[in-house]
């Protein structure tokens, strides 16, 4: 993928989800992480980086600044599951009648 990231459209953005990517954004910014989602309105990429101390860094790259996207790695099942449940609200408790 070179120029034109914002023009790719949902189906092609979707193919990058759950992959580890390297994103070049405007001149000297380079961001790496697992692609969680792409906002279909602004083409902004949400990248997640798991840190060694157990913390999670979320990086959002604005669609207009994306210059190059390179796929580094596919997620295994565990990473993919972990990614997709990361932002879900904590389980709601069921109230007894």
């Amino acid at each position: 993928m070179q120029r034109g990231w914002p023009l790719l459209g949902p189906l092609r953005w979707f193919r990058y989800v759950n992959k580890k990517v390297k994103v070049k954004a405007r001149k000297d910014e380079e961001v790496r992480g697992w692609l969680f989602t792409v906002d279909p309105v602004s083409a902004s990429m949400v990248l997640v980086d798991f840190r060694e101390n157990g913390g999670v860094l979320v990086q959002v790259v604005m669609g207009h600044a994306v210059e190059e996207v390179q796929v580094l790695q596919e997620a295994d099942r565990r990473t993919a599951d972990h990614l997709q449940t990361m932002f879900l609200p904590p389980r709601t408790c069921i109230l007894e009648p």
Binding site: W13, D39, V46
Partner: peptide, 22 residues
């Protein structure tokens, strides 16, 4: 194709909105 595109669009947007919420 339109339907699968719309499905992808809604999944992607939902994820983005959840990220903003967090």
């Amino acid at each position: 194709e339109l339907q699968s595109e719309q499905q992808a669009r809604s999944l992607l947007r939902e994820g983005f909105l959840r990220c903003l919420l967090s």
